[in-house]
Each structure stands twice: as C-alpha cells, then as structure tokens.
Amino acid sequence: MRLNIKPKVDEKGLNKHQLSKLIQLGYTATCNLYEGKTERIYFDTLENICKVLECSPNDILISDDPKMKKLLAYNKSDTTF
C-alpha cells in the first residue's frame, strides 16, 4: 500500500513547498510523499494531508494487491455514513 497524493495536490493548485508548510512537514519528506517514495506515514501526517487536500485516506491510498484494490474501490463507492 502506498500514498498517491500528487493528483490531489495538483488539483488544489499547490506546489510541494506550499504543501510542506500546510501539512507541517519538512520539504524533503513532503517531496517523498508527493512522489510516492515513502514506506510509512504517521497518522497525524496522514490526517494533516487529508485536511489540506479535503479528502479521506481512501482517496489517496493505493495498492497493487488485488484484494486491497477491491477493498479500496468498494470503500470509495460507499457514500453512506
């Protein structure tokens, strides 16, 4: 499983420097997140990203595992609260 925040960041019209300041994370770490080159993330960082990008974790998490892809796709289509 990995993060795919680039489309959401670009959609918001933010650059990596702006994102870094908004999520309160160092520039290098933010670049790694933006480029999908990170293997782990703290929950508070994930929460900050979701707040800034106005999305849920399901909107930015992707997986190559077929079972996880199915679960993530199912949860994205479930809009009941």
Rank of each mutant, 00 (worst) to 15 (best):
S77L: 13
T80A: 09
D59F: 09
D64W: 12
L19S: 03
K67E: 10
D44V: 01
S77H: 08
P7V: 02
E39K: 14
D64G: 04
E39C: 02
K67T: 00
K21G: 00
T30L: 00
S63R: 13
T79L: 11
N48D: 14
G36N: 06
R2Q: 11
A73W: 10
S20G: 09
V52K: 04
L72E: 05
M1I: 10
C31G: 05
N15R: 14
Y74M: 13
R2T: 01
K70N: 13
Q24S: 11
K51M: 08
Q24F: 06
L72V: 03
K69V: 02
T30C: 07
R40Y: 08
Y74L: 12
A73G: 06
K16T: 15
L19K: 03
N75M: 11
A29N: 09
K8W: 11
D78L: 12
D10Y: 01
V9Y: 05
K8H: 14
Y42R: 13
K70Q: 14
T30E: 01
I5R: 06
H17G: 02
D65W: 07
D64Q: 14
T38W: 05
D78Y: 12
V9M: 09
K37H: 09
K16C: 05
K76A: 11
S77M: 12
R40V: 04
M1L: 13
Y74E: 11
K6I: 03
I49P: 04
L53Q: 02
E54A: 10
I23K: 03
R40A: 04
E35I: 02
K16R: 15
Y27G: 01
K21L: 14
Q18R: 15
D64K: 13
T30I: 08
T30F: 02
N15A: 08
L53E: 03
C55R: 05
H17M: 15
A73E: 14
L19T: 05
K70P: 06
L3W: 06
I23Q: 02
S20N: 05
K12A: 11
S63M: 14
C50R: 06
T30M: 00
Y34F: 13
L71V: 14
D59A: 09
N4D: 10
N58K: 11
D78F: 10
K70C: 06
L19Y: 05
Y74I: 07
V52D: 06
S20W: 05
F81L: 09
K70V: 00
Y27E: 11
L46V: 01
T30H: 03
D65C: 09
K12D: 09
T30R: 00
Q24I: 08
Y42M: 03
L72N: 03
N75Y: 05
D10R: 12
L22Q: 15
P57K: 03
P66K: 15
M1D: 04
L22K: 15
R2S: 01
K12R: 15
L71R: 11
N75R: 14
K12T: 08
G36A: 06
H17E: 15
K70A: 02
L72S: 01
K70T: 05
K21M: 09
L46Y: 03
K12W: 01
